[in-house]
Design a protein around this nucleic acid. Structure first.
Length: 524
RNA sequence: GCCCCCGUAGCUCAGCUGGAUAGAGCGGCGGCCUUCUAAGCCGCGGGUCGCAGGUUCGAGUCCUGCCGGGGGCGCCA
């Protein structure tokens, strides 16, 4: 791009984009708008010349060009180009849109990480759905992903669980700051000798039992982990990881002693103030565990670390980043993704201590895995989700997820109706040279947008983009289904071509739903 | 007081690196099933993009300041 007359670089960059409105062509460029002041000519004249040049260059891939508005140049691609592109999609098969990452990375994604002191609730459900979908998207995009669940099985919370369990087992009142849910009584009955054994043992057994339940809940929700990392292991053994992290920090000159406690100089690295690692009592803080845990992650050699946290942890971001830098890490490679809250209405409180809250299991029981995941994933992670349980329960069939699944099922029905041989023939040669109806061309365009959507969703850590795209694709298929007979097309070629378009669409709907962890049924 | 997120249609939310008449779902009103699944389709109505400035040829989008909502600021986890 040439500099402007006054020698400064132009502020805006020339773009080649796919306009939202169909009337503005398949591609649109603002190049003429930016060139005009440099050339000293009217933007529309520049656009016209640019259009002529492109027409010569692109040949029959281009149907026509249009100068529009203040000087945009809109390019309309031909049917031949669209059919050729469709052929590419069909040929790519299940790999269409996959592996687009320019620099594949080995990434650790830590999510959920709920305390093993009670059942998962709706907030955890959002974290689980988001983290899982993010892993699926990043993996599909070409990254190597490891999924981790950090188990806080060491601190005072677990001890309180033990006290609560013991109280229940003895038929006593649960302590003021204890856990009161019904599950506590259930667990107390399950754990042998809960009334007599040392409270630490009861706590440990209780946490293990809760964790087993959590894992089962997550599995039913379609969420799995490669590693369940125990906080306790950070503190065990002579060469405890916590000690090693302290040593490393000391070597880097980042720690000091004051008032009997060991402090980390996080304020030198962007935090508001320094933080305590080891209390004057000799106990480690929760922060110390996290520092050691992240040091352990560093030692495992990831290119990037992602932590999915609840909104109540956002005050923790600065110190964690600072600690990561203090350990010698690049804070840019530690991403702390904050999930905003799920505001539950029409149901019970989400307070964990209240003992009466809507669990992930309850949620799934009410609306099913697919609707629950869709609902939690369809919104950006940094906006609060309004989840009306009554509405979700009553309006299940109106949920957009069913619309998308329905489109998939319809295509499956179409393909079933076609003979196997015909389907294969259609997919072997999708381009039959038949002219494209408007709805057909729009559907192909939507299909072709998929890799870009994956790229966007991966780069922005934004699964909700996939949900939005899936809905749009399903809508575009509905228009195609309405306007373009497939099985009843006038000619065999047209029938084959439309079968290919349908099959390609089906594959992408299935893939998009899979990236969200939602099923793609063959019939509904 | 400081920090983070949000403020777009009656409700719930999209809106990608600033671009051309601001979109969807739900809800409302009115139509469409001897025709590839009506869990569907079509049409209508509905918005000073919180407010005020600023940058720009161009701002829902970027900057500043207010207002409103949510959350967080512990030698708790």
């Amino acid at each position: 791009m040439a500099a402007t007359a006054d020698g400064h670089a132009p502020r805006a960059r020339p773009t080649l984009e796919r306009p939202r409105k169909a009337g503005f062509g398949d591609f649109s460029t603002n190049a003429a708008l930016l060139l005009a002041p440099v050339l000293g000519e009217p933007p529309r004249d520049v656009a016209a010349r640019l259009g002529d040049a492109l027409s010569d260059r692109l040949g029959d891939a281009l149907e026509r060009v249009e100068v529009a508005g203040p000087g945009f140049l809109n390019l309309f691609l031909s049917d031949a180009w669209h059919r050729g592109a469709l052929g590419g999609v069909v040929a790519a098969g299940a790999r269409f849109g996959a592996g687009g990452a320019a620099v594949p990375e080995r990434i650790s994604v830590e999510f959920v990480s709920a305390n093993p002191t009670g059942p998962l609730h709706v907030g955890h459900a959002r974290n689980a759905a988001y983290g899982d979908a993010l892993c699926r998207i990043l993996s599909f995009h070409g990254h190597a992903i490891e999924r981790e669940f950090y188990v806080n099985d060491f601190g005072s919370q677990v001890l309180r669980l033990g006290e609560s369990l013991q109280a229940r087992a003895r038929g006593e009142e649960v302590p003021e700051d204890g856990y009161r849910g019904e599950y506590v009584a259930e667990l107390a009955a399950e754990i042998e000798g809960a009334a007599q054994r040392p409270v630490e043992e009861v706590a440990r057994a209780g946490a293990a039992a809760v964790l087993t339940r959590i894992a089962a809940t997550l599995e039913a929700f379609g969420v799995g982990f490669d590693l369940w990392f125990s906080e306790r292991t950070l503190h065990e053994g002579g060469d405890a990881l916590v000690r090693r992290a302290y040593d490393e920090l000391e070597r880097q000159g980042r720690t000091y002693r004051s008032e009997g406690a060991l402090w980390l100089r996080t304020s030198q690295l962007g935090d508001d103030k320094d933080r305590v690692l080891e209390r004057s009592s000799g106990e480690h803080t929760y922060f110390a565990s996290d520092v050691a845990y992240h040091q352990h992650k560093r030692e495992r050699g990831f290119d990037r670390l992602l932590d999915v946290w609840g909104a109540d942890h956002h005050g923790y971001v600065a110190r964690m980043k600072a600690a990561f830098a203090a350990l010698g890490g690049d804070p840019e490679r530690l991403e702390l993704l904050i999930m905003q809250f799920v505001n539950l209405t029409g149901g019970a409180s989400m307070s964990k201590r209240a003992g009466d809250f809507v669990t992930l299991d309850d949620l799934v029981g009410e609306v099913g895995v697919d609707a629950a995941r869709w609902f939690l994933l369809a919104r950006s992670h940094d906006t609060t989700v309004e989840f009306d349980l009554d509405l979700a329960r009553e309006q299940e069939p109106q949920n957009p997820v069913y619309y998308v699944q329905y489109a998939h099922a319809r295509i499956a029905s179409l393909l079933r109706a076609a003979q196997d041989a015909e389907r294969e023939v259609a997919l072997a040669r999708p381009d039959r040279g038949a002219p494209l109806e408007a709805a057909e061309r729009e559907l192909i365009k939507k299909v072709l947008a998929f890799p870009g959507e994956v790229e966007e969703a991966a780069a922005r850590r934004a699964p909700h983009r996939i949900a939005a795209y899936a809905l749009e694709l399903a809508q575009q298929f509905s228009a195609f289904y309405r306007d373009c007979p497939v099985l009843k097309a006038e000619s065999a070629d047209l029938r084959a071509q439309r079968l290919a378009v349908s099959a390609a669409t089906q594959g992408i709907i299935a893939r998009a739903l899979d990236l969200l962890g939602v099923r793609a049924p063959a019939s509904m």
